[in-house]
Amino acid sequence: MTEYKLVVVGAGGVGKSALTIQLIQNHFVDEYDPTIEDSYRKQVVIDGETCLLDILDTAGQEEYSAMRDQYMRTGEGFLCVFAINNTKSFEDIHHYREQIKRVKDSEDVPMVLVGNKCDLPSRTVDTKQAQDLARSYGIPFIETSAKTRQGVDDAFYTLVREIRKHKEKMSKDGKKKKKKSKTKCVIM
């Protein structure tokens, strides 16, 4: 069974824990209790493949930012979460993405942009803004509501699919490099 290491990042209060708990335990946590770091595991079937999701729910508070490099190193894919009623959390996505790329030393890291709290009427981040940002990053965008469960499975499952595509691409690139290195030079 394939294991996928997913990391949920975003500013404090955007609903990272609520999304994760909704996926794992099928219930909505409405009281806000700032996370330092929590880890969850769940076995699911995605596109006919049974897999184990190892999900790291991270601290959004700035005082825990020193811990970010460590979990970013171990993560295979990242859910970059903002709240649709919090423009600052949307603007912060850029910083999370840049930090992930720096730590992973790669421009090509599996990510999904997630606009959470889409059940709320007080939207300050337009869907088109988020779609445009995701398009500019070359990553999928999904709106979710941890409260109603809308888009929750889709967000995590899409990230797994992005990781699969990335692994497939990397193995193809690896095979191309191996083929090239088999060419021999004969000096007579």
Rank of each mutant, 00 (worst) to 15 (best):
residue 42 K to M: 08
residue 84 I to T: 13
residue 34 P to C: 01
residue 41 R to G: 04
residue 27 H to M: 15
residue 141 F to S: 06
residue 142 I to H: 15
residue 124 T to H: 08
residue 167 K to Y: 05
residue 28 F to K: 00
residue 86 N to F: 01
residue 136 S to L: 11
residue 110 P to I: 04
residue 41 R to I: 06
residue 164 R to L: 12
residue 170 M to L: 06
residue 38 D to K: 00
residue 29 V to Y: 15
residue 78 F to S: 02
residue 71 Y to G: 14
residue 15 G to C: 02
residue 96 Y to R: 14
residue 88 K to S: 15
residue 155 A to V: 07
residue 107 E to N: 11
residue 61 Q to V: 04
residue 166 H to K: 06
residue 167 K to N: 07
residue 131 Q to F: 12
residue 106 S to D: 14
residue 102 R to T: 06
residue 104 K to Q: 11
residue 156 F to M: 05
residue 42 K to G: 02
residue 164 R to E: 11
residue 4 Y to G: 15
residue 119 D to Q: 06
residue 138 G to R: 11
residue 72 M to S: 05
residue 4 Y to R: 12
residue 25 Q to E: 03
residue 50 T to Y: 13
residue 113 L to P: 02
residue 71 Y to P: 15
residue 175 K to A: 02
residue 174 G to F: 11
residue 78 F to M: 03
residue 43 Q to P: 11
residue 53 L to A: 12
residue 36 I to Q: 01
residue 66 A to Q: 13
residue 98 E to N: 12
residue 61 Q to P: 03
residue 163 I to W: 04
residue 39 S to W: 02
residue 154 D to R: 07
residue 32 Y to T: 00
residue 22 Q to G: 06
residue 110 P to K: 02
residue 183 T to F: 14
residue 104 K to E: 08
residue 75 G to L: 02
residue 172 K to N: 10
residue 97 R to W: 14
residue 11 A to R: 12
residue 56 L to T: 15
residue 82 F to D: 06
residue 72 M to E: 02
residue 166 H to S: 06
residue 122 S to G: 11
residue 97 R to F: 15
residue 67 M to Q: 03
residue 50 T to K: 07
residue 30 D to T: 08
residue 80 C to Q: 06
residue 9 V to F: 05
residue 109 V to F: 09
residue 15 G to F: 15
residue 117 K to T: 14
residue 16 K to Q: 01
residue 137 Y to N: 15
residue 82 F to H: 09
residue 149 R to K: 04
residue 49 E to A: 12
residue 14 V to W: 06
residue 176 K to I: 10
residue 141 F to Y: 12
residue 31 E to L: 04
residue 4 Y to A: 10
residue 166 H to W: 07
residue 87 T to R: 04
residue 77 G to F: 11
residue 49 E to V: 10
residue 6 L to S: 15
residue 154 D to I: 06
residue 160 V to W: 07
residue 63 E to W: 01
residue 143 E to A: 06
residue 130 A to S: 08
residue 43 Q to N: 11
residue 114 V to F: 03
residue 168 E to G: 10
residue 173 D to N: 08
residue 79 L to Y: 03
residue 186 V to A: 15
residue 8 V to R: 01
residue 9 V to K: 01
residue 137 Y to V: 13
residue 153 D to E: 07
residue 111 M to S: 02
residue 69 D to T: 13
residue 67 M to L: 13
residue 54 D to P: 15
residue 121 P to A: 11
residue 150 Q to R: 06
residue 168 E to V: 06
residue 29 V to W: 13
residue 10 G to W: 03
residue 82 F to W: 08
residue 94 H to I: 15
residue 65 S to E: 06
residue 18 A to E: 01
residue 132 D to N: 04
residue 106 S to L: 08
residue 74 T to I: 05
residue 118 C to L: 10
residue 106 S to T: 13
residue 44 V to C: 13
residue 158 T to F: 05
residue 50 T to R: 12
residue 99 Q to P: 01
residue 118 C to G: 08
residue 111 M to T: 03
residue 82 F to A: 14
residue 134 A to D: 14
residue 5 K to Q: 13
residue 170 M to D: 04
residue 145 S to F: 10
residue 123 R to W: 06
residue 43 Q to D: 11
residue 45 V to S: 11
residue 59 A to C: 01
residue 134 A to C: 10
residue 157 Y to M: 05
residue 2 T to D: 13
residue 119 D to S: 10
residue 45 V to R: 13
residue 122 S to D: 10
residue 119 D to M: 08
residue 96 Y to G: 02
residue 74 T to D: 11
residue 137 Y to W: 10
residue 5 K to P: 06
residue 129 Q to Y: 15
residue 11 A to N: 03
residue 44 V to M: 15
residue 152 V to Q: 14
residue 21 I to F: 02
residue 10 G to T: 08
residue 51 C to I: 13
residue 169 K to V: 04
residue 139 I to P: 15
residue 2 T to H: 13
residue 58 T to R: 00
residue 110 P to W: 01
residue 113 L to N: 03
residue 59 A to P: 01
residue 53 L to W: 04
residue 176 K to R: 05
residue 111 M to D: 06
residue 104 K to Y: 04
residue 167 K to E: 05
residue 168 E to R: 09
residue 128 K to R: 06
residue 48 G to M: 10
residue 163 I to M: 11
residue 136 S to F: 05
residue 184 K to E: 06
residue 46 I to P: 13
residue 47 D to K: 14
residue 103 V to Q: 04
residue 58 T to N: 00
residue 116 N to S: 10
residue 5 K to H: 04
residue 157 Y to P: 10
residue 108 D to R: 11
residue 160 V to Q: 09
residue 75 G to C: 03
residue 141 F to H: 06
residue 124 T to Q: 10
residue 77 G to T: 14
residue 109 V to W: 12
residue 73 R to E: 08
residue 164 R to H: 11
residue 42 K to S: 07
residue 19 L to N: 14
residue 119 D to R: 14
residue 29 V to R: 00
residue 122 S to R: 05
residue 28 F to P: 01
residue 170 M to G: 07
residue 43 Q to C: 06
residue 186 V to E: 13
residue 40 Y to H: 00
residue 50 T to I: 13
residue 106 S to I: 13
residue 175 K to S: 07
residue 136 S to H: 11
residue 94 H to R: 15
residue 164 R to V: 05
residue 31 E to V: 03
residue 114 V to H: 02
residue 104 K to T: 15
residue 57 D to A: 00
residue 26 N to W: 13
residue 29 V to L: 04
residue 155 A to H: 14
residue 157 Y to K: 12
residue 122 S to Q: 11
residue 13 G to C: 11
residue 3 E to L: 10
residue 69 D to S: 12
residue 68 R to L: 01
residue 3 E to V: 11
residue 169 K to D: 08
residue 79 L to R: 07
residue 14 V to S: 10
residue 68 R to K: 04
residue 12 G to Q: 14
residue 62 E to G: 03
residue 123 R to Q: 12
residue 64 Y to D: 01
residue 3 E to M: 13
residue 136 S to G: 08
residue 167 K to C: 05
residue 21 I to S: 02
residue 100 I to S: 10
residue 64 Y to W: 01
residue 108 D to F: 05
residue 130 A to H: 08
residue 58 T to I: 00
residue 182 K to V: 04
residue 18 A to R: 00
residue 21 I to H: 02
residue 165 K to A: 05
residue 126 D to M: 07
residue 156 F to G: 01
residue 78 F to A: 02
residue 165 K to S: 08
residue 70 Q to A: 15
residue 2 T to V: 09
residue 65 S to K: 10
residue 94 H to Q: 15
residue 28 F to H: 01
residue 122 S to C: 08
residue 62 E to W: 02
residue 146 A to F: 00
residue 43 Q to G: 11
residue 156 F to Y: 13
residue 14 V to I: 12
residue 32 Y to P: 01
residue 53 L to Y: 12
residue 108 D to G: 06
residue 26 N to L: 05
residue 21 I to W: 02
residue 91 E to D: 07
residue 98 E to C: 05
residue 4 Y to S: 13
residue 101 K to E: 12
residue 118 C to K: 07
residue 130 A to M: 12
residue 154 D to K: 06
residue 41 R to E: 05
residue 56 L to E: 12
residue 178 K to F: 09
residue 115 G to T: 14
residue 102 R to E: 03
residue 35 T to W: 00
residue 98 E to I: 01
residue 69 D to R: 10
residue 35 T to D: 00
residue 19 L to I: 11
residue 162 E to C: 03
residue 51 C to A: 11
residue 162 E to T: 10
residue 17 S to C: 02
residue 30 D to V: 05
residue 31 E to W: 12
residue 86 N to C: 11
residue 131 Q to K: 10
residue 65 S to A: 13
residue 183 T to I: 09
residue 64 Y to L: 02
residue 84 I to Y: 12
residue 135 R to Q: 08
residue 159 L to A: 05
residue 121 P to D: 12
residue 28 F to N: 00
residue 183 T to H: 09
residue 134 A to W: 13
residue 142 I to N: 04
residue 25 Q to W: 13
residue 125 V to G: 11
residue 97 R to D: 15
residue 71 Y to I: 03
residue 83 A to M: 10
residue 33 D to Y: 01
residue 124 T to G: 10
residue 49 E to F: 10
residue 39 S to M: 03
residue 172 K to Y: 09
residue 135 R to L: 12
residue 111 M to R: 02
residue 9 V to N: 04
residue 83 A to F: 01
residue 104 K to L: 07
residue 184 K to L: 04
residue 121 P to G: 11
residue 106 S to R: 13
residue 135 R to H: 04
residue 169 K to E: 07
residue 9 V to Q: 02
residue 119 D to V: 03
residue 65 S to Q: 11
residue 182 K to E: 04
residue 169 K to S: 13
residue 161 R to W: 03
residue 159 L to K: 02
residue 83 A to N: 14
residue 158 T to I: 09
residue 52 L to Q: 13
residue 9 V to I: 11
residue 39 S to F: 02
residue 173 D to L: 13
residue 152 V to M: 04
residue 174 G to D: 05
residue 163 I to V: 04
residue 14 V to Y: 12
residue 16 K to N: 05
residue 114 V to R: 02
residue 11 A to H: 10
residue 14 V to F: 14
residue 139 I to M: 06
residue 151 G to F: 12
residue 33 D to L: 00
residue 121 P to T: 11
residue 59 A to L: 00
residue 159 L to I: 06
residue 111 M to I: 08
residue 33 D to N: 01
residue 99 Q to L: 14
residue 125 V to A: 10
residue 41 R to C: 06
residue 45 V to C: 08
residue 15 G to N: 07
residue 28 F to A: 00
residue 81 V to S: 12
residue 61 Q to H: 11
residue 153 D to T: 08
residue 36 I to S: 00
residue 139 I to C: 11
residue 73 R to D: 05
residue 49 E to R: 10
residue 81 V to D: 02
residue 22 Q to C: 05
residue 157 Y to V: 09
residue 3 E to H: 14
residue 132 D to Y: 05
residue 40 Y to S: 00
residue 162 E to F: 03
residue 123 R to M: 11
residue 129 Q to R: 08
residue 122 S to L: 07
residue 151 G to H: 11
residue 177 K to T: 13
residue 92 D to Y: 05
residue 70 Q to C: 13
residue 129 Q to S: 07
residue 101 K to W: 10
residue 112 V to Q: 06
residue 4 Y to M: 15
residue 49 E to I: 09
residue 39 S to R: 12
residue 72 M to K: 15
residue 137 Y to S: 14
